[in-house]
């Protein structure tokens, strides 16, 4: 790493683990306006196509005895349906298409992001923040719409001693507003960290000659872990959405 100083002067490391996240226009080199088709557009479109292929094309035959694709689609349907019903309650089923949308988008994006040379849209804070803010706003608005000011009783823990309640209310309030932050950072951070680690190891592999078998083996192992993380983070984001929705639509549980 003799060239570190020069590299710093150029504003980066020798290994560029963050290059993979750069948003580029698909055509030309113009500035990125809000409507410019970029690699974000491309990979989101691919995610949409995957969702359509899985949920629409494979269920085209409406078979009583399902084909392989149809049983996967039914598996997802049953899995999310049960999750919404169990966690958010029966009232939460009104939000089932919404939760399903969020889950399928995140799941497909995570999986697509693991294809080498691809671009993982869910590793961007902009994307996850919008997803999390949508959940936050939905929960808040639906909560106030359905329960009125009774929604605020969520912060007033009536089972605690009276003297502790204001303190608990403050803590609950802060944790309520931290929710969208942690909700989005968890997903984006996990994805970003995993991809960056793989990239760093790949940089080692490029620099180590014959000994690069070691980083390549490590990349393989981390790749397996990342597959797990991609699925688990989609699951976690969805189940937390359901947990937050329960506050808005479920019975008071304090």
């Amino acid at each position: 790493m003799a060239t570190t100083v020069e590299e710093h002067a150029a504003g980066g490391l020798q290994i560029h683990p963050m290059d993979q996240f750069v948003v580029k226009p698909l055509f030309g080199h113009g500035p990125i306006e809000w409507y410019t088709p970029t690699n974000v557009t491309l990979w989101m479109a691919i995610a949409v196509l995957c969702v359509v292929a899985l949920m629409v094309l494979s269920t085209r035959r409406r078979a009583i005895v399902p084909s392989r694709g149809q049983s996967v689609a039914e598996l997802f349907y049953g899995f999310i349906h049960k999750m919404v019903e169990d966690v958010a309650g029966h009232e939460g089923l009104k939000f089932f298409p919404y939760v399903m949308t969020v889950f399928l988008f995140i799941f497909m994006s995570n999986m697509l992001g693991l294809i080498p040379m691809s671009f993982s849209t869910t590793s961007h804070i902009a994307v996850t923040a919008v997803l999390a803010m949508m959940v936050f706003l939905t929960v808040t608005l639906v909560g106030f719409y359905r329960k009125g000011t009774g929604f605020l009783s969520m912060f007033w823990v009536s089972s605690a001693p009276l003297i502790l309640r204001p303190i608990l209310a403050l803590i609950e309030l802060i944790s309520y507003f931290v929710r969208p932050l942690s909700h989005s950072i968890r997903l984006g951070g996990n994805l970003m960290a995993g991809h960056a680690v793989i990239k760093v190891f790949a940089g080692f592999a490029g620099a180590m000659g014959v000994a690069s078998v070691v980083p390549i083996a490590a990349i393989t192992a981390i790749y397996g872990l990342e597959l797990l993380v991609a699925a688990v983070q989609a699951y976690v984001f969805t189940i937390l959405t359901c947990v937050y929705l329960r506050d808005a639509v479920g019975e008071a549980h304090h």
Partner: peptide
């Protein structure tokens, strides 16, 4: 790049 990403995300969703 945020407006771009947010716009395309909303379209996708």
């Amino acid at each position: 790049t945020w407006p771009n990403q947010i716009f395309w995300l909303l379209v996708t969703l």
